[in-house]
């Protein structure tokens, strides 16, 4: 099944600048941080704040 992937992300994920941001470790920085930690990246002319979402899930999930 297809995992969650917004149209915006699908669009930018094909952009070489996104891949450069990945190589620069944007996700590792965010993923290694606490909730809400963010980094700003530029893809094309658009700036994006990439952030780790805060835990506000409504349901509990399998551990």
């Amino acid at each position: 099944m297809k995992a969650l992937m917004s149209e915006e992300f699908k669009k930018i994920s094909r952009n070489p600048e996104w891949r450069r941001a990945l190589q620069a470790g944007v996700l590792k920085v965010i993923g290694g941080g606490s909730d809400g930690k963010s980094e700003v990246i530029t893809v094309g002319k658009q700036k994006y704040r990439v952030s780790l979402m805060r835990r506000d899930l409504q349901e509990s999930y399998p551990s």
Binding site: M1, A3, L4, M5, S6, E8, F9, S13, L27, G31, M53, D56, L57, Q58, E59, Y61, P62
Partner: peptide
Amino acid sequence: NPWYYLFSGYDWKSGTPDFVM
């Protein structure tokens, strides 16, 4: 199937994630 709801980001109260890592 809780996995389905987890990976589809269905249960977020505010905002929707853009992707899952």
